[in-house]
Structure formats: C-alpha cells, structure tokens
Design a protein around this nucleic acid. Structure first.
Length: 567
RNA sequence: CGGGGCGUAGCGCAGCCUGGUUAGCGCGCAGCGUUCGGGACGCUGAGGUCGGAGGUUCGAAUCCUCUCGCCCCGACCA
C-alpha cells in the first residue's frame, strides 16, 4: 500500500477529552473516527487490525470445533420477553418499531436467537455437543460509553455458544474455550489473566473473565500474592478475621448526641470501626432491605443483588428508610420489624458491638448476634479489599485495575428451558440443553493491545495483528537512485507476499519517522542516499532502538525472515 | 439519572466576562520556490450556517430562554 493513497491521515493533535492511550493513539494514527457517543468509524488501518484479530479468533474457534454462522442483529422483542431478559437489559436494549408498529431490538447479544435456532435443529443427544459462533455487531445503549473503544455502544463481538447434554459436557466445552481463549490472547501479544467473575443474576454456576492488567481498565481484580488466585472485585472474598471474643455483656443504651456516622460514633465512643455494626438501606426491586455489616467493611452490591435475586438494586433514600420506621443515624436491627434484614457474616467475628438504638442521638453498646436481633440471612456480602487475607491460602490480597477482554459463562439450562430447547437422550427422555456462552469484544481487544503496546511516540503493534508488517521509508526521494531502489524493493517485498506500507510521500525525514512510529508498523526499512552509498538499506524494529544495515541484494529475504519468523 | 465541563474551518484552540466594520491563531490543505536522517522555511491562496431555534438590542459568536450534541466524575454496565 502506498501511504500517499491511504485513506486516513495522521494527526498531531486530538481532542483533549480523549484521555486513554488507545483512544488518543488510534485517533492520532488516523485509524478511528467517532460518529456519535460510543459509535466509531474504523478506517482502513484499524480495519486491517480488526480483521487480523478476527482471523486469529476464527482459527482458534475452528480448531476447538466451533462452526461459524451469522445471526441477525434485528430481533423481535417477543423473543426477549420470553426469557425475561428485555427487563434485565432494561434501557441498555436498543429498540425500534417497524412500519407495522412491531417492536424489535438490536441484538446486545445473541443467546435468545441462537437458543431458538438450536431448539429447532437439535433433537437428539447425537446432535451434541455443538459449538456455534459468529463475529457480529452488538448494540448496547450503555449509560456512559467511555475510553474510546473500551466501552462502545456499537461493537463487534465474537460470541460462541456451547450446547451439551449434561454438566460434564458443559465442563468439557468450557475447558476447551478456556484453552482457545488463552491461545488467542497469547497470539495477540496480550498477557491476559484468568479470573473468577460474577455470573450475574442470569448466569449459571461458573463464570470467568480474561483481564489484562492496565491502569485504564474499568474492572478491579483482587488477586493473591501467594497462590495467584484472582477474582473480579465483584466476586472476590477474603478472610474476615475474628476481631474479638469473650462473654457477651448486657446491652445498654448510650447517648451519642449529634454523632451519626460510623466514623463519628466510633470516635466518640472510642471503639474501633470494626467494633461497630453499620446499617445500610437498599431498595431491591422496590422493597426496602436493611443491610447490616461490620463498621469497617463495605457492602458488595453485586453479592447483595445475587443473594436477593434482585434485578434492580439501589441505595434507599433517607425518606424511604424513615417511612419504614427507621431512625436514620441510629438505625438498628434490634427490635426492627417488617423489614428484611440481610447481615454480612462479619457480624459473627466479634462480640459486644456498638450499633444503633433506633432512637435519636442514642446508640446501643454490647449488641450481640443472635441474642439481640435476628437476620433473615447471614451471608458474605462484603467487598474484599487489598490487604485482606486470601481465603484459599491465607496470603495477602492485592488489587489491580484491568480491562475485561473476554468473558465466559456456564449458562446451564435457564435459557433452554425458557425457549424449549430440548433434546432426547439415549433412553428416550427429554432434557433441556445445557448451555455456555463465550464472548470477546474485538474492538476492545484492539484497544487493549494498544494500551499495553505503546510508547510516547505511538503504537507498537505485535506483528501478528499489525496493519502492515513493513514500513518502507525512502528519504530524500529526489536524490537519484533512492526512489528507484525503494520502488524495486517494494515490488520485491510484495512479490514475497509481505504486507508493506510504502511511504512514497514527499516529506521530510522527521515527518516520515514520526508517522512510522505513530502507526507502529513492526519493521521500518529506510532507504536514503546514506544507505545507498553502502548499497544497503537500514532496518529498525519499532520495539527496539537499534538499527541495522543490510545489503540491498539481501534485504528482501532478510526482511521476510524478520516479519515471518515461522516460515 | 445526579454532578461538572465543552460545542467557533478537516484537527487543536483564542475571542464571549465588559455586544460594535470583512471572526482570529497554530496545524493540516492547494500553488510556487528553497530544504531533506527525527514533526524545515518563505511567499501566495482556499476553507466558517460561531451546534440549532427563539428572544433582547440600532447591532449578538458575545446577553437571556429553550433545545440538540459531545466529554469527564459518579450511579449504571453478562
């Protein structure tokens, strides 16, 4: 490709609001252009990268036994009503009406469509296992798209769905996918980390995410220094140390004039925060929930929503709490009636806690569970924190930010039951198909690659996904011989099947070198009067500082060797 | 959805507070010339519904009202 003909120019400046490296660099490189919030045009260079990523993914999916197909983006809303997921996606579901006023959704994902399709084509256990996938545009009306391609509203995703006869089959499909995903990230040059994830209200028993650790990531990972186990912070658990033991003392009221928050009360009564019980109020599907947790811990809302099987969980307003007879600032589980109490199991790690008295400016000392109050559930609903101990090995937990570049779920039979996807086993009995789903966001993966592979000059593409392999860069093109040598090498490299970006522009060396660095093509080949004096060309890898002179007549084969190491 | 910010040429910005001829600057773009190993320089030139609508005024990019869009923080997010 001649750079002079390439659609998409590099730019020196980009909008100041583009603050993540990948967003900034993809814009500057002329690879990406925003159309509207969370919706992007991919220019030729970006499109080449995306196609290379897709090819790697296809290759791995096919090797794992996947069959590619293509499913519609436009989907009747009734299908979503059947599974109830129109409600769980809520406003994130893009919907529209056709001319007959029939409501349709733009697919945010394709479980519904594929499950219905499978229900029509899978009849026997002989049809299983089955792995179907596509690379398809998804639409999600995210409340807040951000970070360029990190969170978009329209994006390409590879989604594979597994269909098995039983849990063991699902486990095998799942393991296959974990392996394939590992290969994909490796081939894309990404050190992805496998972590345990929350499966959400709809998911089945297991879910994992692939995360690349990176400051601009939106997800928090809690991982153990010693045993290297890792989870999404939404899912992570940690050891809740026993902080006090002893004989329960009689409960008694104590005046706490003007002291409301845990911080204020613990300071005033000279009790550590962990010696207090904190009350937090939530509205779960419009019902008030009283949540109790040790004063030094925070509520993990994902865990809470899961134990409540709630699809809509939010903090309650002060008015809503008061309406239930709660004295805010002194809320107490003791004597509370008519409101569901969910307690974190940390309330059992101590004795004689300070808690509210449900009386203005008053708290209770020496509150003990279960002597003084009952809870509808005592479960783990706490956020694990860096510094806590690992529940597996006792090691120290650390926290890191990361970008989710893949997510896999064991769905189970939830959707097949709803959509009548059944098969007949060898004994003639009917069973719901056991499903799994496995997704990789293609654009986000590209963005993650840039996040992890760049310097202050620009992108440094791994050769496997680089838009071109070679940047052919003649300097002083008016000097006799330079253009001819470059043209001839260009022809030769193309004939060898190499992907060459030929900077045939009349530009100064600085411009060309800076653009080469910005675009991040793995190998730069410079031809100039200086190199021609020695009948050579200069090679420089984008990832390294050193340059190397190679005789003109050996250049093509040397270059081929560098950019296609395996063959 | 709550909070904050911003819409002026392809891109980045100034001008607005304190209204006043043909709305500026840098990059980029076009032409000519000089340059040529890390974003060269000179000259000439093209390019604008100042996001949109309404209002105030003799006069609006500038003041007021409404509206649309975009970004950031949070909530949210298979």
């Amino acid at each position: 490709m001649r750079l002079s003909r390439l659609f998409g120019k590099t730019q020196r400046e980009v909008p100041s609001e583009a603050d993540t490296a990948s967003h900034r660099l993809l814009l500057r490189a002329g690879m990406l252009r925003q159309l509207t919030a969370g919706v992007y045009c991919y220019l030729p260079l970006a499109w080449r990268v995306l196609r290379k990523i897709e090819d790697i993914i296809r290759d791995e999916m096919n090797k794992a036994g996947g069959q590619e197909l293509s499913l519609p983006v436009l989907q009747p809303i009734e299908l979503w009503r059947k599974t109830g997921r129109d409600a769980s996606f809520g406003k994130s579901l893009f919907t529209l009406c056709d001319r007959k006023e029939r409501q349709l959704a733009l697919g945010p994902t394709h479980e519904e469509v594929i499950t219905q399709l499978a229900s029509q084509h899978v009849q026997s256990y002989r049809d299983l296992p089955l792995l179907l996938y596509q690379i398809q545009t998804k639409f999600r009306d995210e409340p807040r798209p951000r970070g360029g391609l990190i969170r978009a509203r329209e994006f390409a995703m590879k989604d594979l769905y597994s269909f098995d006869a039983d849990e063991e089959g699902l486990d095998r499909s799942y393991q296959k996918m974990l392996g394939a995903y590992g290969n994909i990230y490796k081939r894309c040059g990404l050190p992805a980390m496998l972590i345990e994830a929350d499966s959400g209200a709809i998911g089945g028993k297991d879910s994992h995410e692939f995360i690349v650790v990176c400051e601009t990531g939106e997800d928090e990972v809690i991982h153990c220094e010693s045993c290297h186990c890792a989870s999404n912070a939404e899912k992570a658990t940690s050891v809740k140390e026993k902080i006090a033991s002893g004989e329960p003392l009689p409960a008694k009221e104590v005046a706490t004039p003007g002291y409301h928050s845990i911080e204020e009360v613990s300071g005033f009564l000279k009790v550590p925060r962990s010696g207090t019980l904190k009350a937090v109020f939530y509205m779960a599907d419009n019902k008030l929930i009283f949540v109790l947790i040790r004063g030094d811990l925070e509520v993990n809302e994902v865990k809470l929503a899961n134990v409540l099987h709630s699809t809509e969980l939010r903090l309650a307003t002060e008015e809503e709490a008061k309406a239930a007879g709660i004295v805010t600032g002194s809320a107490s589980p003791v004597g509370l009636k008519g409101t569901k109490i969910i307690a974190d199991d940390s309330i059992k790690t101590g004795v004689n806690f300070v808690a509210g008295a449900n009386k203005p400016d008053t708290h209770l000392k020496n509150v003990n569970y279960p002597r003084d109050f009952k809870a509808d559930m005592v479960v783990d609903i706490a956020l694990a924190r860096a510094g806590d101990r690992c529940p597996g090995c006792g090691g120290k937990l650390l926290s890191a930010q990361g970008i989710e570049v893949g997510h896999v779920f064991k769905l189970g039979t939830f959707l097949s039951n709803k959509l009548d996807a059944f098969f007949t086993d060898a004994g003639g009995a009917r069973h719901p198909i056991v499903m799994g789903c496995y997704g990789i966001g293609i654009g986000r993966l590209m963005a993650a690659i840039v996040e992890l592979n760049h310097d202050d000059k620009g992108i440094i593409w791994p050769i496997s996904v680089a838009p071109y392999q070679v940047y052919l860069c003649p300097l002083s093109t008016e000097t006799p011989g330079v253009t001819a040598a470059a043209e001839s090498l260009y022809t030769e490299l193309e004939a060898l099947g190499l992907e060459v970006l030929f900077d045939d522009r009349v530009e100064s060396p600085g411009v060309k070198f800076n653009d080469a660095d910005l675009l991040g093509i793995p190998l730069r080949v410079t031809i100039s009067p200086r190199t021609l004096e020695k009948e050579s060309v200069e090679l420089k890898r984008r990832s390294e500082k050193e340059t190397e002179l190679v005789p003109l007549d050996k250049a093509a084969s040397k270059i081929k060797g560098i950019v296609t190491p395996s063959g």
